[in-house]
Design a protein around this nucleic acid. Structure first.
Lengths: 224, 224
DNA sequence: AAGCATCTGTTGTTTTTACAACAAAAGGAG
DNA sequence: CTCCTTTTGTTGTAAAAACAACAGATGCTT
């Protein structure tokens, strides 16, 4: 593991931790190494992660393939960087992305539970505060990722369907209300209000959804 | 402060912390309360934050106004939720958003340094690990926010200018290279590759930028 | 109830995009 | 060097969006 010291030294996760501490820490965290070939999929969209991945060599791509096969690169992960930390911190959330090796890549996996649990319970609620902050940041990550998933759709229609079906799923009900008026929704989706209004009414005319004010109902199951 | 207990109980930041601990903790963290009127701006884009804001009542909007006045609502913050935590955790990063009161709103500010510093130094590098994880998550937040800023532009041309000028600033140099080929860049920006290629060449013909392969140079200062 | 401001839907025009199909350039392997 | 693959640029067409201007609906205040 020593040959990766240059990577560890520049890794954000290990800043301020010296080489000696590092080695014992890696054992303590039960770090495990894996290697992948170019194009190989490390984790599939929809799965969950219980550990954080640290790229040792090569590069990864975070991909978002939609239903029709449009592929969006959300990010590129290079040596020293992490992936999956958001989903490891919010284990109830299934991966919204697929992780693929952009080239031959080595990865070090660290168990998130061992990272989060402070050895000595010195100041209980202060430690809890840090854990909560981590959770908040990870969840905000998810919100941003979700918004990106909506706004990355090519047409206003698809942006609407992506957003509304996500809201529907979140509400656990075909009928739901949204926290935006039309102008705010248009701003959120990054589109023109009047064009969005047209698209909305067209969807209603096609019988795909119903609405009045900010109460919506998806009447057909639609692939976002 | 007791009247906000229902808010505190459902606030993600305070999960797993009981009411008694909470009160002493708030003093320990030197929490400070402020009130705002509808439409009032709490923090302006470009500033920095040294504390985290917790909304007690009302609602906030995170706004992104671009150079020409197009306004995007990045998020809505309701009671119990935080704002500014990303920028408080990465204090070198100036706010990319403006925080505005969507209605009359009360906010509780918590000093981030007091949150991050564990009272007893029990397991030094483990605590450091948590701090680093927080930093990583906050920075990923920034990356997602930046991508959103690019992709929320209405035209391919503006998306390109937004992205390239950001890369230029990041490189600290008018000439810089990007980590994508054309197809990957198009995927990242969520646009069609060939249309993007056209837009790129048009910008070159107009003398706004030069490029060969993934080496770019902005020849005029352009407002993204 | 009347008046006013805000929100929402409608329509037509212009601009921009996605898409497709192809041509040119660059890079690698034998 | 030549063949082959990948990448990048070009062009034309059909679809979609932005924009602007307006009309109807809704809600609030007086």
């Amino acid at each position: 593991m020593k040959k990766y010291l240059p990577i560890f030294r520049k890794a954000a996760l290990f800043q301020g931790i010296n080489d000696m501490d590092l080695e014992s820490m890696l054992q303590c965290l039960s770090a495990k190494r894996s290697a992948y070939q170019k194009g190989q999929v490390l984790v599939q969209k929809g799965m969950t992660m219980s550990s954080v991945g640290l790229v040792l060599s090569g590069a990864l791509h975070l991909l978002n393939d939609d239903f029709w096969g449009n592929r969006t690169i959300l990010a590129q992960i290079v040596p020293g960087e992490l992936f999956g930390e958001t989903y490891a911190c919010v284990q109830t959330a299934p991966l919204q992305v697929t992780v693929q090796a952009a080239e031959a890549t080595e990865v070090l996996y660290l168990d998130i539970r061992k990272i989060m649990t402070l050895c000595t319970a010195s100041c209980t609620f202060h430690a809890r505060l840090l854990q909560n902050l981590i959770f908040v940041l990870a969840q905000k990550n998810l919100l941003l990722t979700q918004k990106l998933e909506h706004t990355s759709k090519r047409t206003t229609r698809d942006k609407l369907l992506s957003y509304l079906s996500a809201e529907s799923i979140k509400a656990g009900c075909a009928t739901f209300s949204i926290p935006f008026n039309r102008q705010e929704l248009a701003d959120y989706l990054g589109v023109d209000r009047s064009a969005m209004s047209s698209a909305l009414c067209k969807l209603r005319d096609e019988g795909i959804l119903e609405f009045q004010k900010n109460q919506f109902a998806l009447t057909h199951s639609v692939q976002p």
